[in-house]
Amino acid sequence: MFEARLNQGAVLKKLVDAVRDIVSEGNFDCNENGLALQAMDSAHVALVAMLLRPDAFEPYRCDRNMSLGISLKSLGTILRCASNDDIITLRAEDTADQLALTFESPQSDKVSEYVLNLMDIDSEHLGIPDTSYDTVIHMSSAEFQRICRDLQQLSDSVTIDASKEGIKFTATGQLGSGQVMLRQNMNVDREEDATVIEMQQPVQLTFAVKYLSMFAKTTPLCNRVTLCLSKDVPLLLEYKIDEIGYIRYYLAPKVDS
């Protein structure tokens, strides 16, 4: 039996909204470490790895390890029936081919029950090596989203260039080019707006901005984002979900042309 009751139901709604454009389906692994999903996009360019730890839930019960094959589109459809302040409970029997979802209003005066049919999904679980990155950037997630949105107008690729001067995002296309330079700044009114750069060595990588923009849809979940860059290694973009979990995105770089 798997049962997990999430007080902040909106977290699950936002989480599914964030990843459903990138991965259409995936196996949600339920075990003592929490509820986890690792899934690649169909082009094998990007990978989503998310975790909600057991302490995200009250209660969290998982009698044995289970893997729930879920269509993110279908789950998103059902979650739209939940209000933002609803408490969401997920429930599945050990051998079930369905996931039960209960949405409970804060005062328990409205309780809705939905059932999602599960799928058999053959998914490859990738081993992600531990990496010490050349440059790590902590910044406002809204600012990152803005930069992706702006530069996507110019090109399908964005080059991120970390140097002593700061972090430079560049896009060059048919109409011209654009660049945005971010410098370390911890002297801000709101802590969430600070830009912190930890640079071991300079690095320059080019990425498909379409994916960066899709990752940035996670912004409503977290006002900070961390970018981890190393030469010839996929980008790691991490959004922490309070103290209860995270969404990490990995994106393969483009080869210089």
Partner: peptide, 13 residues
């Protein structure tokens, strides 16, 4: 600009 690499060339199955 640039050729897109696959994640499978970086991460082990």
């Amino acid at each position: 600009s640039g050729q897109q690499r696959s994640l499978l060339s970086f991460f082990k199955k």
